[in-house]
């Protein structure tokens, strides 16, 4: 009677296991690498209706973030400025620029400028800007060096891990209130100085960042 299976079939179970293992490993790698915000969101830099440069306005001119995002200390939502805010200067500076046509039109008609939202969290996550900036968390902690960006891009992942890293160790980020919009500031004594003074501010202000689910999800 001829053999039903060739001799090489003896290796088959091991080969199948190896293949499935490699396949599973690759799939896990792919999911971790490509299906997390570090890939899906970081680097998002949509084309805006007006080519506004933060590098020029916040970096070169040194305008404070709050000149335009004026409600950030009072409200959970950091507002995109009204077109009147633009016109405060641009009624005299480059008043005829074609790049600003959308802003002028908006100012005259009252229609909103259709800015494209870049940074967003899901509707089930409640982030409050005022709670963070009035307690010494700088804009740079989440938005990176916006003052050096010609075009704004999503720089940090905004994943839950990203939030929790800071909520677990606020002393690494908390700085004096008057330095919140100074994006280039780093503690002069380096990381150890930041930890020491950060811890002091955390204690003084009784900062207790929530780590429970309901802290952010309601």
């Amino acid at each position: 009677m001829p053999k039903l299976f060739p001799k090489s079939a003896n290796r088959l179970p091991l080969q199948i296991l190896t293949f499935v293992g490699v396949l599973g490993g690759l799939a896990a790698l792919g999911v971790t690498y490509y299906m997390t915000p570090k890939y899906t969101r970081v680097g998002y830099a949509p084309v805006q209706p007006v080519p506004f440069s933060h590098q020029l306005h916040a970096g070169q001119l040194g305008l404070d973030c709050r000149y335009c995002h004026s409600n950030v200390e009072k409200s959970g939502h950091a507002n995109v400025p009204t077109s009147q805010t633009c016109m405060n200067c641009h009624n005299q500076i480059k008043p005829q620029s074609p790049l600003l046509a959308v802003v002028r039109q908006s100012y005259e008609s009252g229609e909103a400028v259709p800015w494209v939202k870049i940074h967003s969290v899901p509707d089930y996550a409640y982030f409050n800007h005022a709670a963070h900036v009035t307690r010494g968390v700088s804009c740079v902690s989440c938005h990176d060096r916006i003052d050096q960006m010609e075009t704004v891009q999503h720089a940090k992942p905004f994943s839950m891990e990203f939030c929790l890293d800071c909520h677990r160790a606020p002393q690494e980020a908390v700085r004096p209130r008057e330095l919140v919009t100074n994006l280039g500031w780093q503690h002069p004594a380096g990381a150890s100085g930041q930890l020491r003074d950060g811890q002091k501010l955390v204690d003084d202000w009784k900062i207790k960042p929530p780590q429970s689910c309901s802290g952010c999800h309601r």
């Binding site: 570090k38 890939y39 970081v42 680097g43 998002y44 830099a45 084309v47």
Partner: peptide
């Protein structure tokens, strides 16, 4: 093929982010 199509983390892009 997947890596060459999807690229690497941190590259800038203009289209709305992929929704997982």
């Amino acid at each position: 093929l997947a890596v060459s199509l999807l690229g690497f983390r941190g590259a800038t892009f203009v289209k709305p982010p992929i929704d997982v």
